[in-house]
Design a protein around this nucleic acid. Sequence first.
RNA 1: GGCUCCGUAGCUCAAUGGCAGAGCAGUUGACUCUUAAUCAAUUGGUUGAGGGUUCAAAUCCCCCCGGAGUCACCA
Length: 505
Amino acid sequence: MAEYNSIEKIRLQKLDELRAEGVEAYPTRAKRTHTNAQAIAAFEAGEASAVEVKATLAGRIRSMRPKGKLTFAHIEDGTGKVQLFFRVNEVGEARLEFFNKMFDLGDFVEVDGVMMRTKAGEITLHVHDFKLLAKSITPLPADKDVTQEDGTVVRYATLEDPELRARQRYADLAVNPEVRETFRKRAKLVKALRTFLDDHDFLEVETPILQPLYGGAAARPFTTHHNELNQDMYLRISFELYLKRLLVGNLERVYEIGRDFRNEGVSFKHNPEFTQLEFYWAYADYLQVMELTEQMVSYAAEQVTGSTKVQFGEHQLEFKPPWKRVEMRQGILETSGIDIAEHKTADDLFKVIRARHPNKTPDPNFTRGKMIDFLVGEFLEPTLIQPTFLYNYPRDISPLAKSMPGDPLTVERFEGYVAGFELCNAFTELNDPLDQEQRFLEMGRDYSDDEEEKNPLDEDYLRAMRYGMPPNGGFGMGVDRLAMMLLNKHSIREVLLFPALRKEE
RNA sequence: GGCUCCGUAGCUCAAUGGCAGAGCAGUUGACUCUUAAUCAAUUGGUUGAGGGUUCAAAUCCCCCCGGAGUCACCA
């Protein structure tokens, strides 16, 4: 049972009074002839020729200024705010008093009248009749917008607490219009990615979220149980193995945009469920994927922000192709002074890192690949601000990527980095079933004592590969992270409507 | 999970051991072009929960809950 505060108690009392007077507080239907934006546009269009614009508007009351026998108010709908002007001349004294007393900030109303311009110059609906559409019990966080003379809007005391904003996103959206704008732009981003891939003949598919076996990434899964089948199931950690099965089935270009689930830490760039985009492209290699990637991301940037140049914090990012390309060995050499090609075992690599950088030493138990990854993270990654492809990765941390011809320790893989953190990951996909089986077994050996990194052997996937898989390039990208970059948000929570939070007590 | 910081009225914030306050919102009244309307009066608190120290705790200590930052983790 809810406990009500003093404001809520008063509003519940008003609700009783309304019902006693026979007023329906939550009528079933509303009618409106214009959105707020349409009404303003219609008035502006007809203003010079003095065309009368009648309009029925609907929206939430955001401000009220009763002034004796006049009342000014603003309502807000999905398109913005419009001022309302009530006079006793039209609505009568009793109805005006009824409005002033019984209507509150946050209530939804339907208002009927004629568009006009006030003496102060604001386009306003001159109200002739009004009706309650939905009574608000809980007060929205108080806020006031003041438009300065130079046109800038100053916001006074609105909802700012990041916990409340995320937990009660409905209230955040209701009072912070820029938050609504963020999520409109996020939708534009996802749509742009779809349009781009559709236009490049990729087929959008949907693969299982609930899987008997997880794979395609190194992450701890969420586990659940199917009662009737009496078996444990996992929420997917990637789409990779299912999408590549489709290449075996002669679907040559496939993609999926959907949710991945990883049972790991939560941070400004990690949420336990996040939106992933993956595509697989038969007869292409990682270099072609690189070119498609820079085109796709720059297209998305342009659709969302209107430009390929995007401000992110203190950096202006330029997404226009071609992006900078850094070969991993070269990049590590330049930033750390270590040539990984001269150190072919994990032990060798550990010793040279310890000798050159005694303050930045990796775990001595790391594999060679993880040592290299450590060097990237410590030295190279922070330097990759402008969109950059880092390419040619160590084989042992890339069990699904194809080796470079003539270099068994290195695979044809790249990651896209922007603003110092990882945006996407792609490679020329391994399509040799025997090599793949060997890699799975090696992963099992290398990480046998590490529950989190164990890659379960997917026999069905190997069976699919044995039918024959065309050579192909594959790609994966965190859509939330791209949204952060394009929208200049520095926490993943700002681009998720309902980020993961602990249960409220 | 480690460390640091935060939690006070519906919202934004004061009060640092000595009577829990302000602005906005709310309530009552005045006001026929206001827009942070104005003016007058006024309501609202288990200071996140529990325990302790003290004559006295929002303030100091312990523990729990929630959050933020940071590190670890995250091919």
